[in-house]
């Protein structure tokens, strides 16, 4: 599993803000980079994978750690 190059802390933000944060940041990173999004809005678990599908990016999965739910996204293009 690729370690995330960067963590976007979107805790406390309501959707669509976590999705907007990853949409802003991911294109600035090199292709192949993994970004981890910390987001506790329950809609993020639905909307981050949906955004990846719509944008052709890769959703790697959900990790529930001490910081709450985290979502890993890899830039594919």
């Amino acid at each position: 599993m690729t370690a995330p190059a960067e963590i976007l802390d979107c805790r406390g933000q309501r959707c669509p803000l976590p999705v907007i944060a990853v949409a802003r940041r991911l294109p600035e990173m090199p292709v192949g980079t993994v970004v981890r999004v910390l987001a506790d809005d329950p809609a993020a678990a639905v909307d981050l994978p949906a955004w990846c599908r719509m944008r052709g990016q890769e959703f790697l999965g959900t990790i529930t750690g001490p910081d709450g739910p985290a979502f890993d996204v890899r830039r594919r293009h």
């Binding site: 669509p16 809609a43 639905v46």
Partner: peptide, 11 residues
């Protein structure tokens, strides 16, 4: 319902 379908839920 949107969650079960895996489609965008915001907006």
């Amino acid at each position: 319902v949107l969650e079960a379908m895996g489609v965008l839920s915001h907006g």
